[in-house]
């Protein structure tokens, strides 16, 4: 597997009035292409901040993030937006679907930024919904779906553009055990069969077990562990 993400000397602090609160201290990390990686750690450890910076929705104070040879931390907002549209699929804890759009329309949303024709968009959207097992719920609105189904729609939206990386922030955090299991199975399937690189933030050790590589963060510092080590936790 080739190196996909390279993080060097990454630093990030937040300011509360005049008080500097360090969130990430000199993070160095490499993620290979096709890897299913989990970021774990207690609240305030900096795992979501790290995920956001890898996904290009937050910027570091110092250091670099290089993804497939592109230094994203120095990109301007417009370039970063284009980069995200082409390279990143997002899966959120609370699904973040647009309530006035159907499942189909929600999944189609990222494709509106591409030059695909209507027929091509339709085909790609239907394929994504088939992969997540919701081909029969295309015309349903989010409020007509269960939490697990909403998250599946969100996953379909994340994969519809065939991005380089899938970033998932507590994807099972708002789901019951059975639904969480379904979502984790789906993510595993995307990783193994569709060779998606997945970066997941989770509190749940059971969810983290699905990852091939686990990185543990604590007070902004990174401790790398492998899958076996996770099982030992």
């Amino acid at each position: 597997m080739s190196k996909l993400i390279e993080i060097r000397d990454l630093k990030k602090s937040y300011w509360r009035e005049k008080l500097e609160i360090p969130v990430l201290n000199n993070i160095n990390l490499t993620i290979d292409s096709g890897e299913f990686t989990a970021l774990m750690g207690p609240s305030g450890s900096g795992k979501t901040t790290l995920l956001n910076m890898i996904a290009g929705i937050d910027k570091p104070d110092d250091g670099s993030i290089t993804i497939e040879g592109q230094e994203i931390s120095s990109m301007n907002e417009t370039a970063l937006a284009k980069w995200r549209a082409n390279n990143v699929g997002f899966i959120f804890q609370f699904y973040n679907l647009i309530p006035v759009l159907t499942a189909f329309e929600n999944v189609e949303l990222p494709l509106l930024l591409t030059k695909l024709s209507k027929a091509e968009r339709k085909q790609q959207t239907e394929t994504a919904l088939k992969i997540v097992g919701l081909a029969d719920r295309m015309d349903h609105y989010p409020k007509q779906l269960s939490g697990g189904q909403e998250q599946r729609v969100a996953i379909a939206r994340a994969i519809v553009t065939d991005p380089l990386i899938l970033v998932a922030d507590e994807p099972t955090g708002d789901l019951d055990k059975a639904s969480a299991e379904d979502i984790l199975n789906l993510m595993e399937l995307l990783n193994k069969e569709h060779e998606k690189t997945i970066l997941m933030v989770t509190h749940d050790p059971h969810a983290a077990e699905r990852a091939q590589v686990l990185h543990h963060l604590e007070k902004g510092d990174l401790i790398k562990s492998d899958k076996k080590a996770v099982q030992e936790h």
Partner: peptide, 14 residues
């Protein structure tokens, strides 16, 4: 506000 953030994350511009 949250939906706009989602749209921006998906690549929608200003």
């Amino acid at each position: 506000t949250r939906e706009y953030a989602v749209l921006k994350a998906l690549g929608f511009s200003g």
